[in-house]
């Protein structure tokens, strides 16, 4: 093959790789968006659970499905909400503003935690709509830095994330 013909072939190959995406790709994206929007409309609450021994946990595994299927209820720390209510899993009604929501929980003072936030559907019983797993190095009785949780990607999984009281 002469150098000129090789360059022509290379140019043709590159040109074929550029340009607009094929129509099938656009359909797929639209479908995903519509599913995601539907799930977002179904979002009813967030459930916060804190686990000890954070370094030994695998966030990738935790986020796949409901946390209650992966840990014993008594493993979770007892938390306290701003209203004084205590529980191993605290629920907060969803109230997203610009895709974010701020809340606060009282966590036992200590180190090496994992904070798992699960998105719950409005249905009864609720369905798991995705979760966020975040390592929390320490909690002190004084001021603690805000935890900016990893973003939750809403995807429906058929399980009930409710923790036994």
């Amino acid at each position: 093959m002469s150098p000129r013909s090789f360059l022509l072939l290379l140019g043709a190959t590159l040109a074929a790789g550029c340009g607009a995406e094929p129509p099938s790709s656009g359909n797929s994206l639209a479908l995903e968006l519509s599913i995601s929007r539907a799930v977002a409309d179904d979002l009813g609450a967030f459930q916060v659970v804190v686990l000890p021994e954070g370094k030994s946990r695998r966030c990738a595994d935790i986020q796949r499905t409901c946390l209650n299927q992966q840990v014993q209820p008594q493993e979770a720390l007892v938390l306290q909400g701003p209203d004084g209510k205590k529980g191993r899993a605290l629920r907060f009604p969803a109230g997203l503003r610009s895709g974010a929501q701020e809340l606060a929980v009282d966590v036992p003072v200590g180190r090496d935690y994992v904070v798992v936030i699960e998105a719950l559907s409005r249905s009864n019983p609720p369905r798991f709509l995705g979760s966020s797993c975040n390592y929390l190095e320490s909690v002190s009785a004084a001021r603690n830095e805000p935890l900016i949780a990893a973003a939750i990607t809403l995807t429906e999984v058929a399980c009930d994330p409710s923790f036994a009281p």
Binding site: S36, A104, V107, S132, L136, P146, I148
Partner: peptide
């Protein structure tokens, strides 16, 4: 004793 510390959390959801 259950000495606690308040942890502010910002939850984010992918659009």
């Amino acid at each position: 004793s259950e000495e606690r510390g308040r942890v502010p959390i910002t939850i984010r959801v992918n659009p």
